[in-house]
Design a protein around this nucleic acid. Structure first.
Lengths: 121, 121
DNA sequence: GTTGCCTCTGACGTCAACGTGAGGTCCTAG
DNA sequence: CTAGGACCTCACGTTGACGTCAGAGGCAAC
């Protein structure tokens, strides 16, 4: 059983974030006799996945819809539809990012042509 | 010369957003005699690129650093370094998204196995 | 037993990218 | 010449994911 600081350090987030996740129903913790949170080892991976979903543009409500499937491995048809929606959203984001990356890349290429004296090895 | 509503409609953003971009120094506009903004045709593409950069996780300050290179086609070595940094950031984001997508995908796959009676064609 | 770090519960602060009126002006179609 | 959109400038409101501070208690070491 891990304490909150330990989980935060391992998952690379703040202690405040973990309390916030609990507030949002994203993360459960047992309590010690004195009321301190105790986490299972699996909490670290769970938190990292939550971070990934946030990074993918989901809000905490979306994450809340997705997470039960992760834990139970079971999904209702409605949940599956949501999951597919979220995956499609991520696909669109990846496509946009790829396009933005390509544009940035071309800007860099042009920039290097115009200032070639420095990087020429 | 386009009016603000026209640019907003074509670029798929709000009028308020365009004023905000101007406020942040991201987008310039001439003014008519009565003070109304008049945009060049190129503003539409510029706005769309700004949106892509926002979607890529850049804030307006970052965008402000990147945009001059787009317009002039010239970049100082420092600017080039920033551009490369931003591109690397986008690469990291794409990697994260791809990983999140893979995890979602597996959840969907497992979910479909557990509820096969519906989707079976 | 006390020092020093960890944790607790509120509860207000923050920051970016706009949203949303208020109150007034412009413009163009009929 | 007037009705009604589109546009203008303030300027406050919103939202999500935390940051941060206050005041109090917990825990392991010395």
């Amino acid at each position: 059983m891990l304490r909150i600081g330990e989980v935060a350090a391992r998952a690379g987030v703040s202690v405040r974030a973990l309390r916030y996740y609990e507030e949002q129903g994203l993360l459960e913790a047992e309590r010690s006799a004195s009321g301190q949170r105790r986490y299972a080892e699996s909490a670290v991976g769970r938190v990292q996945f939550i971070q990934q979903l946030y990074a993918a543009g989901l809000n905490s409500k979306d994450v809340l819809e997705v997470l039960p499937c992760v834990h139970t491995g079971v999904a209702t048809p409605a949940m599956l539809a949501r999951l597919v929606d979220q995956r499609d959203g991520i696909d669109r984001q990846i496509a946009e990012l790829t396009q933005a990356r390509a544009r940035l890349d071309e800007i860099i290429r042009i920039g290097q042509e115009h200032v070639p004296a420095v990087a020429a090895s």
